[in-house]
Design a protein around this nucleic acid. Sequence first.
DNA 1: GGGCTATAGTTGACTACGCAAACAACTCTA
DNA 2: TAGAGTTGTTTGCGTAGTCAACTATAGCCC
Lengths: 141, 141
Amino acid sequence: MRAQATTKRELAAALHDEHGLTMSAYEALYVLARADGLRLKRVELAERLVLTPSGITRLLEGLEAEGYVEKVSCETDLRVSYAQLTDAGVEKLEQASCGHTGSIRSLFEQHFSEDEIETLAELLGKLPGALDEDQACPTDG
Amino acid sequence: MRAQATTKRELAAALHDEHGLTMSAYEALYVLARADGLRLKRVELAERLVLTPSGITRLLEGLEAEGYVEKVSCETDLRVSYAQLTDAGVEKLEQASCGHTGSIRSLFEQHFSEDEIETLAELLGKLPGALDEDQACPTDG
DNA sequence: GGGCTATAGTTGACTACGCAAACAACTCTA
DNA sequence: TAGAGTTGTTTGCGTAGTCAACTATAGCCC
């Protein structure tokens, strides 16, 4: 186990060492897990993750190779394909989630009070692509 | 002139097209301009910009080549060298600043009210490396 | 002094991601 | 229904920035 993260880089390093995921990969799984039918058009995923379409292609290449995401084509529009979270992907996300969200929270707690975190969450939640959801983590203290 | 930026990427592209600066290069000039004697140890600059030491080496390579920053060695500790903003660097920063800070502000204004921006500025100003300074831009409306 | 350990900085190899260009498929309009 | 424009995706190439390994200096303690 790594020492407590004090930067985004350390957060990323922990995620990588412990789960073999990059930050973007984690976010992709996270966003897909909360999407209808565990799937999203690649172009929508791009917007959510603030990546370009080519970035998404590359990112999903990796996730598809690992088996966490499947490429599903759309029947009504042959141009589009969906990124579909697999069972393995769901599981991977669950493994990675609690530690990671906990680390993020404690990173915030190093700098902000509970009230301030709430205010920030509220404000930043207004940003496009933000998910307006409370996500509790059962194993967190 | 580019259309109004709606993402950080577009902000970066504008900065690059209009002034030949990357986001990090701009930030480096910005931070140096507010430092004592317009200089900072490379390692301090790294912390401020949330870059690694090697990242700073690469970044300053470019800025030194352009003549915006000079490498100055420390007389009392031969390990350390300073990044020293030059006159050209000051000038470059001034040219780039107003347009850029204006763009950032309007990007925020797309999503937040004045009050919210103030709250965010206050909260985010607590983060390490943040400069707690009001920086007015004369040509801004 | 000679040997530790810590700190500052550089370099080589690698990676994530952007941009521009290409291509395919869809949707208009005439 | 041919053409034009739009949208979704991929690919080639370039670049910013990471990590790991290294060198050089500083400060410590015997």
